[in-house]
Simulated assay, not measured.
Amino acid sequence: MTFTHVVLYRAMNLGHRGSPVRADLEGALLECGAAAVRSFQTNGTVLLDVGSGGDDVAGAVARAAAPVLADVCGYAGTALVRSLDDVAAAVEGDPFALTRDGRTYRETVTFVDGGQPLSVALPWTDARDLLDLVAARPGVVLGVARGGPGAGGDPNPAVERFTGGVATTRTLGTVQRLLAAAARA
Rank of each mutant, 00 (worst) to 15 (best):
A23L: 15
R63Q: 06
D94M: 08
D154R: 10
V61C: 13
P155N: 01
L69S: 02
E31D: 10
T104M: 12
G165H: 02
R177Q: 15
A36V: 13
D94W: 08
L178C: 08
G18E: 00
N156P: 09
V141M: 04
G44N: 07
A136C: 09
A23S: 12
V37S: 09
G152F: 06
G147Y: 00
T125G: 05
H5I: 14
A127M: 04
E92G: 08
L133R: 06
R146L: 05
A79T: 08
S119P: 11
V61T: 04
A70N: 12
D85V: 10
L122D: 09
L172H: 14
F96Y: 04
A89K: 05
D132L: 13
S119K: 12
V50P: 08
A58V: 01
D86M: 11
D154I: 10
F96M: 03
G148W: 05
S119V: 03
T45W: 02
F40H: 15
G77D: 04
T174E: 04
R106N: 15
L25G: 04
G53F: 07
G59T: 05
F40K: 09
L48Q: 09
T169C: 08
L130G: 02
G77H: 06
V134K: 08
G150F: 15
A145S: 15
R106P: 12
P149F: 09
G93C: 06
S39L: 10
T171R: 09
D71V: 12
V87F: 08
E160R: 08
R184S: 02
D86T: 13
L122N: 03
F111V: 15
G165T: 00
L142Q: 04
L172R: 15
G59V: 09
A145T: 14
W124Q: 00
L98N: 08
D129N: 14
T125E: 02
F111N: 06
V144E: 00
A185I: 09
A183V: 09
P157G: 12
R184N: 13
G27P: 07
G115P: 05
V21N: 10
A158V: 14
A79W: 01
G152L: 04
G139W: 01
Y105P: 11
V112G: 05
A34L: 07
A60V: 11
D56E: 13
D85R: 10
